[in-house]
Design a protein around this nucleic acid. Structure first.
Length: 252
DNA sequence: GCCCAGGTATAAA
DNA sequence: TTTATACATGGG
């Protein structure tokens, strides 16, 4: 639910409830994909043409989904209500599937600043995000540690076509999940994150240590939206809320 | 120095 | 089927 105008080679977007900073800094993305800023209710995409906006960035930011209606459903739950007050401006980005897969392989047993550090080293070295062939060269400079063999596995599987990301995109989610997990180093968490952030399967619900902590504390029986078609959005609100709880409580 | 980080493969119970 | 441990690296 957005409107936009194109002017001076920039795109100016109005999208109710959207928060750029929260969206790009809530742990779903590890590098900047487009030069963007926000002043009040207006998001500016710098040096973006109308065609580029309509064919790419509009979907990337998920501007056309009615998040306000989705949040109304989630707010019936008191914990989700607090989470949404804190970070309800988050949208789930639709990122490149390959980049998402690689990024979350790197993320395992790793912290967000160092995930960004490694990805930046790769992008600096290759001049762009590394493609599968790039990852099959010597990447010791990136210091990915024990994850290097997993990155090679992903590259080999994708390059050989054994795991075709184009095919995965067409599969029902359970089959897509199983296909991704054929890659050594891709377990349930990486697969789920790839499906949610890369393939934009918004029903997917990645479980990391933070989410498990939140579920154990707030929902000892069961999470009411676990089978919701947009459970992944609820997951992102909950993830950011539990990670920044101290900050959140000091604001209220 | 010690602990931890948006996990997974592997071995053992 | 569930539980324990190693794993590379860098920041706090």
């Amino acid at each position: 639910m957005r409107s936009f105008t194109a002017k001076d080679n920039n795109i100016y977007v109005k999208c109710e409830g959207f928060d750029l900073d929260l969206t790009v800094n809530c742990g779903q993305s590890f590098r900047q994909h487009v030069n963007a800023s926000q002043q009040g209710g207006t998001i500016v995409l710098h040096n973006v043409t109308e065609e580029q906006f309509l064919t790419k960035w509009d979907a990337y930011f998920d501007f056309n989904r009615d998040y306000e209606a989705i949040k109304r459903e989630f707010r019936t739950d008191p914990v989700m209500k607090k989470a949404i007050e804190f970070c309800g401006g988050i949208h789930i980005l639709k990122q490149d599937p390959w980049e998402t897969l690689v990024s979350f392989i790197i993320s395992q047993n790793n912290n967000i600043p160092r995930i960004k550090l490694i990805i930046n080293r790769l992008v600096e070295h290759f001049g762009q995000f590394p493609n599968p062939s790039d990852l099959l060269t010597d990447i010791s400079f990136a210091k990915t540690g024990f994850r290097e063999k997993y990155l090679k596995s992903a590259a080999e599987n994708v390059l050989s076509g054994k795991v075709s990301l184009d095919e995965v995109a067409k599969m029902p989610t359970p089959e897509a999940r199983a296909a991704l997990m054929q890659i050594s180093g891709v377990g349930p968490k990486v697969a789920e994150c790839t499906l949610l952030y890369g393939f934009h399967r918004l029903e997917c619900f990645p479980r990391d240590v933070w989410i498990n902590r939140a579920l154990a504390e707030f929902y000892p029986e069961d999470f009411p939206f676990i089978n919701h078609p947009f459970a992944g959005i609820a997951q992102q609100y909950l993830f950011h809320y539990i990670r920044n709880r101290e900050l959140c409580e000091s604001l209220s």
